[in-house]
Design a protein around this nucleic acid. Structure first.
Lengths: 218, 218
DNA sequence: CTCAAACTGTCGGCCAGCCGACAGTTCCTT
DNA sequence: AAGGAACTGTCGGCTGGCCGACAGTTTGAG
C-alpha cells in the first residue's frame, strides 16, 4: 500500500544485458555515488535514464525543508528524471546513466523492450496510486503496519516462529517513506514491541513474530 | 498541484479521428451514461480503455466509505482501467470503450500513436506525483488555493477586474478533489469571500478578483 | 579508546481539521 | 405551487499527530 521497497518486478538490467540488446546500453556511462550523495534534482536540465547496477537509491520529493520518499531502488531498477523528483544514494552505489532522447530512439527498434518500458510506466503509476490511497485513507499507524507487512513478505526470511526483516532503515528513513515524523515512528514501533508483536534484532533489523497481525483488508 | 480538471493536453479523440487512424477506433463501442452512473470499478474483470466523447467523468479511489477524486475527465481525455480506480459520470456522458488487449496490438503498428500513449502515461504519472506532493506538503487551505488558481488559469474567462470560473462542482465535489471535507471547503470559501478575494456568481461559479493572491511559490 | 555524530525514546503542549448536528437556502419534479 | 432533494453555512467538541526539547544509547573514524 505505501511505498514499496522494490519498484518493479522486471529486472531491466538482466533484460538489457542479454547480448541481443547490448547496444542499448552502449551509450550509457557508469557512475559511482557515495552515501547521501545527490544523483539528480528536478532542475537538472536534460532528461536522463538511470539504471541501478548496485547499491540502493532513494527517490524523493522535497518542498521547503520537508521531504517524502517515493521509492527505494535496488539493483536492476530503473527510473527517469522527468518525474519531477530528487534521487540520492542510500548506500554506496553504481549507476548506469544515459540520455532519455538517445535511449528512446533506440528502444523503438525493439518492440519487446518498448512493451517492457510501457509496463514499467504502468507499474510506476500503480505505485503512485497506492501511495495516494494510503495517504488519503489511512492513518500513520496503518501506513506503518502496511509497510512492515509488505517489507516482510518481500524481503523477510523465516526465522523460528516469525520473519526476520533487514530494513536497513532508521526511524527517520521510515518516517520519510510513510509520511510522518521520526518520533511517531519510534513511538509506534515501541508500542509493537511492548505488545510482543515484534522485537529488535540488531541495528535496523526487526523480527516480526506474527505477521498476520499486520494484515490489512484490501 | 492538486488534481487538475483536465488530464492531458493531447486530445486523443482528435488524433484518432484522423482518417489514417480510423481503424484504431473500429472495435470501440459507444455507450451512454447518466449522472452518477458508475462506468467502471477496479473489480471489472477485463481491462478496458475509455475515451470521453462528451460529458464529464470523475475518476476516484474508494476505501471503506470514503472517496478521493484523482481526476476529472472531459472530451478527448482517455483512461484505462488498470489503474485500480472507479469512474463515474458527473454529467450525462458518451464514452467510447474498447478492450486494452485489442487496442494494444493495433497501436503497435503506428509508432506515432505509441509515442502518444507513452506521453499520456508520463503525464498521468506526473499528475499523480503532483497529487502526492500536495497531500504531503500542503495544508488544506493551500490545496484549495492551488486548485482554484489552476482552475482559473485553465478555464477561467476574464471578466472586468477578475476571472470568472465555472467549476461546475459543489463544495462536496471540491472536498473530494483536494482531500478534505465539505464543511472545511465551505468555511474556507466563505473566508475568501469575506476577505473580498472572490465572490459567488450563481451556482458553482466563482468570480476571482485577484488571481495573484492565490499564487503559490513553486 | 575516545569523542563526535548519528540514532533512539519519551513527554507535553498545541492545533488543523474531522465529525456530528442542525438550520437555512436553492433547485428540480410533477 | 408544493414538497422533497440537494446543497450550504456554522458551531463546538475532540483527537491524531506535529513539534521542540532533552536525555540516553550506539556506532564508527582516527
Amino acid at each position: 500500500m505505501t511505498a514499496k521497497m522494490k519498484l518493479t518486478q522486471l529486472n531491466l538490467l538482466e533484460l538489457f544485458s542479454d547480448e541481443n540488446y547490448a547496444d542499448i546500453l552502449a551509450g550509457f556511462r557508469e557512475r559511482q555515488f557515495g552515501r547521501k550523495e545527490l544523483i539528480c534534482t528536478p532542475y537538472d536540465g536534460n532528461d536522463s535514464i538511470f539504471i541501478v547496477k548496485s547499491g540502493r537509491l532513494r527517490v524523493f520529493l522535497s518542498y521547503e525543508d520537508r521531504e517524502f520518499t517515493l521509492a527505494l531502488l535496488e539493483q536492476g531498477d530503473i527510473f527517469s528524471t522527468h518525474t519531477q523528483a530528487y534521487a540520492e544514494a542510500l548506500d554506496n552505489s553504481v549507476i548506469l546513466t544515459g540520455q532519455t532522447r538517445v535511449f528512446h530512439s533506440k528502444i523503438q527498434q525493439y518492440p519487446q523492450i518498448m512493451a517492457a518500458v510501457v509496463k514499467v510506466l504502468g507499474e510506476l503509476l500503480k505505485n503512485s496510486t497506492e501511495i495516494i490511497e494510503s495517504l488519503v485513507f489511512k492513518d500513520v499507524r496503518q501506513r506503518l503496519y502496511d509497510f512492515l507487512h509488505h517489507a516482510a513478505l518481500e524481503r523477510g526470511v523465516a526465522q523460528g516462529e516469525g520473519m526476520l526483516v533487514d530494513l536497513g532503515l532508521s526511524a527517520e528513513d521510515l518516517a520519510l517513506l510513510i509520511g510522518t515524523t521520526r518520533q511517531t515512528v519510534s513511538t509506534l514501533i515501541n508500542e509493537l514491541i511492548r505488545d510482543g508483536k515484534i522485537e529488535k534484532v540488531g541495528r535496523f533489523k526487526l523480527l516480526i513474530h506474527d505477521l498476520s497481525a499486520f494484515r490489512s483488508e484490501n
